[in-house]
Simulated scan of single mutants.
Amino acid sequence: MSSGDDSEEIRLTRPEGQDGWTAVDIATGVASQGRTREEALENLDEALAGYHGAGEEPSDDELRALGVDPAENESSGDLPSVLQ
């Protein structure tokens, strides 16, 4: 953990009565879990990458496989009303 404006804090816990670990990024609220501490942290890294927009946009074939017509797939940049 570091201090200052760019500090990062992760809470790593092993809930009582459960076999796995939970990792939470405090700044974003993004959480993940794993069977081991290392796995929970690796899964958190992957979840944070998705949270921050990492990855590639889906291809037209991937959209079609999900039942989405690529020609009608538009993004205005605005959040849906349910998320506002």
Rank of each mutant, 00 (worst) to 15 (best):
S2T: 01
T22K: 15
P70R: 08
A23N: 04
S76Y: 11
G50T: 01
S32K: 05
S7K: 14
P15C: 07
V30I: 13
R64I: 11
E8W: 01
L79V: 07
S3I: 02
S59L: 03
D69M: 00
S59D: 12
E9Y: 03
A47S: 15
M1V: 04
R35L: 13
G50D: 10
A71M: 04
G77R: 09
A31I: 00
P80D: 14
D78Y: 14
S76E: 09
P70I: 09
L66S: 06
E42P: 03
S7Q: 11
L41A: 13
A71K: 02
A40P: 07
D78L: 14
G50N: 05
Q33L: 00
D25C: 13
R64Y: 08
S76W: 14
D19Q: 14
P70H: 08
E72Y: 00
L83P: 03
L41S: 10
A71C: 06
E38H: 13
L44H: 12
E8R: 14
I26D: 04
T36R: 10
Q33S: 02
S75G: 12
V24K: 15
A23P: 06
E57Q: 10
G67A: 09
S32I: 04
G53Y: 00
L66R: 11
S76N: 10
L12T: 03
W21H: 09
V82L: 15
D78V: 06
D5P: 14
L12D: 03
L12C: 04
G50P: 06
R37N: 08
Q33C: 02
T22R: 14
E9V: 13
E74K: 10
E62K: 11
P58N: 01
A40M: 07
G34T: 03
D6L: 01
T22E: 15
D61A: 00
I26T: 06
